[in-house]
Structures are given as structure tokens and as C-alpha cells.
């Protein structure tokens, strides 16, 4: 190492604790991590946690937008397919949803990049300003809306065959009321479960989408850290990701309680 003295190398080894046994290094890492200290990035020497947290809002915004689009598209289409079960509209929607599920998000992203600037050049494509969230959010949302549509359809079909739905219809309720107030709530338990799973999956898929669309979130950080072998950043990223997924799971459990009081007593 040109220009670096042996004393400097020794000092760096001491600072990084490289002279200690591996288990001591691991235990120290965990102890420091519990206190919010994930070390410093190798490139830039910044505190890892602060660096990652500075990118977290961008990632959460993209995930929330993508999830919003997925729900906004998936739920109505799922309703429509369930309501028209066995008809051409159901078959068409389910065929489209199979295409959606099969479509890799990076491929959809690239297709959007190739077409949108040609026809809709007012939509930003390269990560600048709030409007630049549109394409990455669409990429994430369109793919996962197919999953939500399929899940909504099957959950609604199951509920629509229940006796209480027949009762509601028998007393002359409008079908929109039957669907929205009587059928949707019991069906939403499984839909919410899927949305929770999608959230985790979407956070993972975002790593690629963020890089395709130059969205400056955690996904960009993760890929770059891997390329630069920035181990502290990668470790911090994995722990932060896991914490987010666990938090979302807990929130989902609480939503279950709200949706279905039987879970509380059961």
C-alpha cells in the first residue's frame, strides 16, 4: 500500500478490531448495533445508520406509491372478476393478471423507459423531482396489482357464496352495498395478508427498480455497496430491511384485530 505507513495500518486494524477473535468481533457488532451503531461506511466513512436512514424516506415513498397503485388497480379488477365469475371479463382479467405475475419488474421498467419518453415526454425518467416517482411506482404497482387482483377475486368468490350474502341480497340491498359492506370486510382478511406479503416482496423488488429508474433510495445504496464491497453498509441494509419487514408484519397483525374482532377473542 503506497503512501501508508505500517503504524497507520496497525492503527486501522486496532480501530476495526481485526486483532480480536471472530466471535468477539461478531458479539461487539451486535452489541453496537443494538445501540444503533452499525459502524461506518467504507466508502465515505459516514455512520451507516444515518446514511441508510437518509435514504429510507425515498424507499418508503416508492413502496407506498407502488402499493397504492397495486391496490388501486388490483382491488377493483379483483371485484370485477369475482362478480363476473366464469364470464369473458373474468377470463380476460385473469389472463392479464397471469401476464402481470409472470412479468419481471425490471423488464416492465425497461419497456416503460423505452416507450414513455417517446409518447409522454413530460414524465421524468431519471430520478429528479417528485414526478419522477411515477414510472418506478407504476413498474412496481402494475406487477403486484395482478397478485392483488387474483387474491381479491378468490377471496370475494368464497365470501359471495356465504349464506349471509344471500340474506343481504334477499332483503333487497343494492349489489354495491352487498359487495362493499357485507362481502369486502370478511374477504379483506386474506387480501390484507397478501398485501403484507407484497410489501416485503416489493421492498426486495425495489432494489432493481430503483437502479433502473435512478431512484435514490436504499436499493441504490445496496447495489452500490455490493459493487464496492462496503460490508458495513450491506450489513446495516440487511438489518434495517429486516426491521422494516418485521414492523410491517406487526402492523398487519394489528389490522387483523381491527378487521376481524374474532381474532381478538380467539
Amino acid at each position: 500500500m503506497e503512501g501508508v505507513t505500517p503504524e497507520q495500518i496497525e492503527e486501522m486494524r486496532r480501530q476495526l478490531g481485526l486483532g480480536q477473535p471472530a466471535w468477539v468481533q461478531s458479539a461487539l457488532y451486535v452489541w453496537h448495533a443494538i445501540q444503533g451503531d452499525f459502524g461506518h461506511t467504507i466508502v465515505g466513512r459516514e455512520p451507516v445508520l444515518g446514511f441508510l436512514l437518509s435514504r429510507l424516506p425515498a424507499t418508503l415513498a416508492l413502496t407506498a406509491s407502488g402499493l397504492g397503485i397495486a391496490i388501486a388497480i388490483g382491488l377493483p379488477l379483483g371485484f370485477l372478476a369475482a362478480y363476473n365469475r366464469g364470464r369473458w371479463i373474468d377470463n380476460t382479467l385473469m389472463f392479464i393478471s397471469v401476464l402481470g405475475i409472470s412479468m419481471p419488474s425490471f423488464w416492465l421498467g425497461l419497456m416503460l423507459l423505452l416507450t414513455v419518453p417517446v409518447y409522454l415526454d413530460f414524465i421524468p425518467v431519471a430520478g429528479e423531482g417528485p414526478a419522477s416517482i411515477i414510472l418506478p411506482a407504476l413498474t412496481l404497482g402494475l406487477v403486484y396489482s395482478a397478485v392483488i387482483a387474483r387474491m381479491t377475486r378468490s377471496a370475494m368468490i368464497e365470501v359471495l357464496s356465504e349464506d349471509f350474502i344471500r340474506t343481504a341480497r334477499a332483503k333487497g340491498l343494492r349489489e354495491t352495498i352487498v359487495m362493499s359492506r357485507h362481502a369486502f370486510k370478511p374477504a379483506s382478511i386474506s387480501i390484507v395478508t397478501v398485501i403484507g406479503l407484497i410489501f416485503g416482496s416489493m421492498m426486495g423488488g425495489q432494489v432493481i427498480v430503483e437502479n433502473v429508474f435512478s431512484w435514490n433510495g436504499l436499493g441504490r445504496v445496496a447495489v452500490l455497496a455490493m459493487q464496492q464491497r462496503d460490508y458495513p453498509t450491506i450489513q446495516g441494509f440487511i438489518i434495517l430491511f429486516a426491521a422494516i419487514i418485521v414492523t410491517v408484519s406487526v402492523i398487519l397483525d394489528m389490522i387483523y384485530l381491527w378487521i376481524d374482532p374474532r381474532v381478538r377473542t380467539g
Partner: peptide
């Protein structure tokens, strides 16, 4: 920084 080749040229085409 625009890591993806396609995105860079798409941004050039759109005038971004």
C-alpha cells in the same frame, strides 16, 4: 447518476 443505459438515453430523448 443514472446507472441504467436505457434510462440515460431515454432521459436524453425526453430532454430531461
Amino acid at each position: 447518476v443514472v446507472p441504467e443505459n436505457v434510462a440515460r438515453i431515454a432521459a436524453l430523448r425526453s430532454g430531461e
